[in-house]
Amino acid sequence: MAKNRAKKRPSWEKRRIRNGYIFILPWLFGFIFFFFRPLMSAVQYSLNEINFKQPIEFDFVGLEFFQKAFVDDIYFLPTLSNSLTSLLYEAPLIIAFSLTVAYVLSHRFFGATAFKSIFFLPVIVASGIAFTLMQSDSYASQLGSSVTTAAMFGAKGIGDLLSQAGLDVSVVSFIQSVVDRIFNLTWKSGIQILVFLSAFKSIPQSYYEASQLEGATGWESFCKITFPMISPMLITNIVYTIIDTFTDFANPMIVYINGVLSSQSGRMDISYGSALSIIYFMVIFAIIIVVYAIINRRVSYYNE
């Protein structure tokens, strides 16, 4: 009798395992059919020459398209290095900016709620095509007023001033390009501010009280309590920023690959475009793994 029951109902552990599979089953199904299969086809496209007949024919050419990207294409490598260098100084600036703003906003003061809702606005608006169009509309910035975007966020004056002061040209151009991008950087850091803010709020207040009793200054408690406590979220934010910058509409590499893939440019080449996007993805992946490995060693996890 007892044996029969045991046969009918699998053990608690086994049922747990089965239930776990049931819970992730829909996602697994979707992953295989809507993600893994297209990804494999993309790899297939990149390895084959495609003949658009009925039915479509594939001629296996191996790594020819990958070779073409590195050897024949004169635009690919410069564009890639271009988007890599812009990441190199954009990502730290976004992180520093969002960290500062989030730290300021995490305190209670008059108007904090209003400022918070303003700084979260980019999360709502900036992900859309409307924002891209709004910004790229060159006539709108000339309309009606002397307050143009170029005059407001341009840095010609600063450049002249600094080069008069005797700074090196490369330093001046760096500062100038940063000031030119203040607008974009601010608009790109909505989610990061949000994540940092929630990280700040999750630090127990008693830590600060204890450190204050021991005589720590504000700066010391920031360096020794706040910063280590938010370091796991710091790494999340860095990875998110890298992905976001790389997959941005305006990223030169994305523009280039879309140009190859789209029929408007007159040189639609699906195989080559797929090869390019796979290379690009590999580069992103490698960068993220390197950055993660470097930073993760210095991150302190509270539970470990």
Partner: peptide
């Protein structure tokens, strides 16, 4: 990135 698998 979404465009990697856009055409497939």
């Amino acid at each position: 990135p979404p465009f990697t698998i856009a055409i497939p």
